[in-house]
Design a protein around this nucleic acid. Structure first.
Length: 574
RNA sequence: UGCCCCGUGGUGUAACGGUAGCACGACUGACUCUGGAUCAGUUAGUUAUGGUUCGAAUCCAUACGGGGCAACCA
């Protein structure tokens, strides 16, 4: 993993431009102005370690850590590990790696909900002592029946008025392991008739004789998320508990708990989660893609996971800029994929060295160029930044150009090579097409050309202009590499919104991966490291994949360059 | 059918009772040894209907539309 530059206060979002405050920043500033929390800002990012982080989490991470950075506060990393049957250290490790890679630092504030199991247990005893909780010995089905539904109130459990001494005894024996799974639960005594379903005597503890990835077998009762989350925030001294919209209806319950316990009261603020077009953020479905081998793994470059997008060639800076740009609100929106791509283009445009790479090679034989001769031509490494310097690119009689840069019968406004036409080979010479070879199927197998020695370096002394400049690679010097092209994973724009029950897999794009096994790139790439990023001129941004071997580089296309010619063409098709 | 939340150009957002702005896209044009980048310009919006007000995207009401809630999940 490459080191990530730490975001500073005003580069947290990648751009230092003045920007109006989002609604959460407004709340924070209001609180600060009012002297609330003694001027502290303390947030947290609280993932459940049951899957890999995705772009939706990136939004939350940037928000929480970004807020702390902006207001001189702190942000904790806390794992919500209250369900031993679903969680695993594999996920804990990947989450830590991803947060760090994104450029954020929780310093010494790494927590687990399981660190607070004893506190939570004591809180529960207090609730019992206060007559605000009871042991319910009904089974799952009975409890569900009594909960009522959206329009009808629930009914009280027959155990609701059990004496608190009895509840306390039972609860302690629950902890001691005297009862099997499902035998009983601890419930809060709130209001079975509340229009808010969350208030209808929620379950606080269930029995699970399961080994926890951190606490081992120390516990056989585990707190529910609702019972854990708010108190955990409180114990960590969180001032602003930022979460997604679906927890809005839970807030009254969290507030109720905090009030009953009379402990520090963090303020919960809900925002809309990220939806990105042509992909989905469902952990469950992403897991299924991995398990059913529809992708190569969690870090498949087509995945919307942070590790996937990292392998694809995205930078932390581009992701932070993306998160800043999409903003934060309570409206459920669908962000166009284009925004993500634009963010990485902007970043890499400034930072990626340029190089020439031919994806679909077509050989060009320059008939008036001496056989065996090699010319070294100077090329600029990054026109956006002089400090990148220059490099030498070998040129010889036989070169490869992009197959799409030659047409037998070109349409109007096609500026590239065609019979009789002259183009510039970038940083090299003007060449004019003098002929071509075709196979029996009519495919062009080679192009013949003549070069003008006077145009060395790319300019004609007589001042004549050419319309097009194309990239090329010397055939005898070229490196053979494999390039992998990626397209959207799903064919449905709002792939995150497929109704439950419908077969979401039928929307998977069968052409999301295209492998080009025989691409030709400049020899300088021979020494490049895994993760190194380049712009292949006129083609896009690429990054060296970890599947590379000593014999053959494997290169991912991160994103294409904007292509106005492609746009013109596709319009012509319509 | 109940409760909660949300509706601003194509997209994402701002304006907090006083000129509807910004960004991305799209479209023009300039420039260019990347049909990239850059620069200049254009386009286009307050879901609807009432009300309050000198004045409403903003406050109120109703309607319409979208989202969430009935796991011993988080």
């Amino acid at each position: 993993m490459e080191p990530a530059d730490r975001p500073s206060e005003d580069s947290a979002g990648g751009s230092g431009e003045a920007r109006s405050l989002n609604f959460i920043e407004q709340i924070v500033e209001r609180d600060l102005a009012a002297g609330k929390n003694g001027g502290r800002v303390h947030t947290r990012f609280p993932p459940e370690p049951n899957g890999y982080l995705h772009l939706g989490h990136a939004k939350s991470i940037c928000l929480n850590f970004g807020l702390a950075l902006k207001y001189g506060g702190k942000c904790n990393l806390r794992f919500d590990d209250t369900n031993p049957t679903k969680e695993d250290v594999e996920y804990v490790d990947s989450i830590k790696e991803d947060v760090r890679w994104l450029g954020f630092d929780w310093e010494d504030r790494l927590f687990y909900a399981s660190d607070f199991f004893e506190n939570l247990y004591q809180f529960a005893e207090k609730l019992i002592q206060d007559g605000k909780a009871y042991i319910d010995e009904q089974n799952l089905e009975q409890i569900r029946q009594q909960r009522g539904n959206l329009t009808e109130p629930g009914k009280n459990s027959p155990h609701r008025d059990r004496p608190k001494e009895e509840t306390l005894d039972l609860f302690r024996r629950m902890r001691a392991g005297e009862f099997p799974d499902g035998k009983m639960v601890l419930r809060a005594k709130v209001d079975m008739a509340s229009p808010n379903m969350n208030m209808r005597d929620p379950i606080l503890y269930r029995i699970r004789h399961a080994t926890h990835h951190r606490t081992g077998d120390a516990w056989c009762i585990y707190p529910m998320y609702d019972w854990t989350h708010g108190q955990n925030d409180s114990l960590e001294g969180i001032t602003h508990s930022i979460c997604t919209l679906e927890f809005e209806n839970h807030r009254p319950l969290y507030d109720w708990f905090i009030d009953q316990l009379d402990i520090h009261h963090p303020q919960q603020i809900e925002f809309a989660r990220l939806n990105l077009s042509y992909t989905m953020m469902s952990k469950r479905k992403l897991l299924e893609l991995v398990e059913q081998k529809m992708v190569s793994g969690w870090d498949d470059p087509r995945m919307p996971t942070i590790c996937g997008i990292r392998r694809r060639g995205y930078t932390p800076e581009s992701l932070r800029a993306f998160c800043e740009r999409i903003g934060v609100a309570k409206f459920n929106s669908l962000v166009d994929m284009e925004w993500l791509e634009q963010a990485i283009r902007e970043d890499l445009n400034k930072r990626a060295p340029r190089v020439m790479g031919v994806l679909k090679p077509l050989k060009v034989i320059i008939e008036n160029y001496p056989e065996g001769q090699v010319d070294q031509l100077e090329a600029i490494n990054n026109p956006e930044d002089e400090s990148f310097g220059t490099r030498q690119v070998p040129f010889s009689r036989e070169i490869y150009i992009e197959a799409s840069d030659f047409m037998l019968d070109p349409p109007k406004k096609y500026f590239r090579l065609a019979p009789g036409r002259e183009v510039r080979l970038r940083y090299a010479y003007f060449i004019k097409c003098t002929g071509y070879e075709q196979n029996a199927a009519g495919e062009i197998t080679a192009v013949k050309a003549e070069y003008d020695p006077a145009t060395r370096g790319g300019n004609a002394p007589d001042g004549r202009k050419v319309q097009g400049t194309i990239h090329w690679v010397s055939a005898q010097h070229a490196l053979d590499v494999e390039v992998r092209l990626y397209d959207r994973l799903f064919m449905l724009e709002n792939a995150g919104d497929i109704p439950e029950g419908e077969d979401w897999k039928k929307y998977i794009n069968p052409n999301s991966l295209e492998v080009l096994p025989a691409c030709k790139v400049e020899p300088v790439l021979a020494t490049s490291a895994v993760g190194a990023k380049y712009q292949f001129e006129r083609n896009g941004y690429f990054c060296i994949d970890r599947d590379s071997t000593a014999e053959k580089l494997v290169i991912n296309r991160t994103v294409t360059l904007k292509d106005t010619w492609a746009k013109v063409q596709s319009k012509g098709d319509k």
